[in-house]
Design a protein around this nucleic acid. Structure first.
Lengths: 188, 188
DNA sequence: TATCCCATGTAACGAGTTACATGATTCT
DNA sequence: AGAATCATGTAACTCGTTACATGGGATA
């Protein structure tokens, strides 16, 4: 027997988070991926609809038919209590260094959904943790950078510099965000 | 009959570029992905070895056996003339706006391999083109940012700000790189 | 002697891509 | 009348992940 609490895919969580904030049809979700900066997730029907059916199978969303004036009846998904728990468990994961290396988007996605938790203490912990990972990573990349000879391959060196610049931008962002979140906590 | 000039995967090009710079065995290539900032590409044997065999099947690399003192004889791959052409065709692609949205790594990978072309004019064109894409993208994201209410979701706003910061870092990098590449061209 | 490193490989699986299909309604 | 939009779905394919297997040499 399969474990019905099996991991959802990134796309699955992206969809679940959107549904948690506002019940939506598959078509509406596709539009969001097409027209907003969330476009790093696929908006193709071949990705969305199978993913949505997996959410149904996992019982984290339920469906309601919407009487539209179109050929196919739209299916509006809303999150179930069990889905809410699944989502919150995922949201409460702290960022890991692997994610920073491979896929910073995944971390940002989780962060952007932290409005759902509405737990400023956790948000602050999240960003503090991210900060330490970024610092480690930056140290590592800087060491590599030192090791490359000054007269080595230009493009390789520049590409590495780009990596450093982006890490620094993330670090700067995390510090600014931390200040803002702290101010909000105190203001409460 | 299959077209033997079919597209290689990102991983395929990443490997081909490394082999072009220095003939290597699969194991050596794996180590590179494990220990350098190129770690965004998978170093797992289940990814590398099938990808390498695809390179062989496409005749872009050839194999030479290395007499080692180990159980399995290491296979050293080197690029073929046809592979060199395949690689250069790929390198001469200008970055596209889709890539900037989804996978900046792919662009940086190509850029870091431009040492192989050794064509400063093209390198400059490459970065200039990237710059215009980044400017467009930045304008788009900034517009979205304006549209979000000041008292809207905090985390969503901050995540968007992170996207802007990273785009700005990329833009700044492209300007600095452009200056450096231009100086090199004049110095020649 | 046990464990790590070298060096390659396979098999099952999951997930996304591309391309196609359907069919009513609304815009031009 | 023709095109675009709404709204969902399927099928073939590619690729990467995870986990396992092999087996000799080197290190502790």
């Amino acid at each position: 027997m399969k474990d019905h609490t099996a991991e959802l895919s990134q796309l699955g969580y992206a969809l679940l988070g959107l549904i948690a904030m506002k019940p939506s049809t598959g078509y509406e979700l596709r539009k969001i991926f097409e027209t907003t900066p969330m476009g790093s997730y696929s908006s193709s029907p071949g990705a969305i609809y199978p993913a949505l059916r997996k959410l149904q199978a996992a019982k984290v969303v339920r469906t309601r038919e919407i009487v539209g004036k179109t050929a196919r009846t739209a299916q509006q998904m809303s999150i179930t209590p069990s889905g809410q728990r699944t989502l919150e468990t995922w949201l409460r994961r702290l960022p890991m260094s692997d994610d920073v290396e491979r896929d910073m988007n995944a971390i940002l996605l989780r962060f952007s959904y932290l409005d759902i938790l509405n737990d400023l203490d956790f948000s602050i912990q999240f960003v503090e943790h991210l900060e330490t990972i970024l610092i480690d990573r930056l140290r590592f990349v800087r060491e590599i950078q030192q090791g490359i000879l000054r007269n080595g391959p230009v493009h390789g060196r520049l590409a590495l510099a780009c990596g450093v610049d982006v890490l620094e931008a993330h670090l700067e962002w995390s510090r600014i965000s931390l200040r803002q979140l702290s101010r909000m906590r105190e203001a409460k």
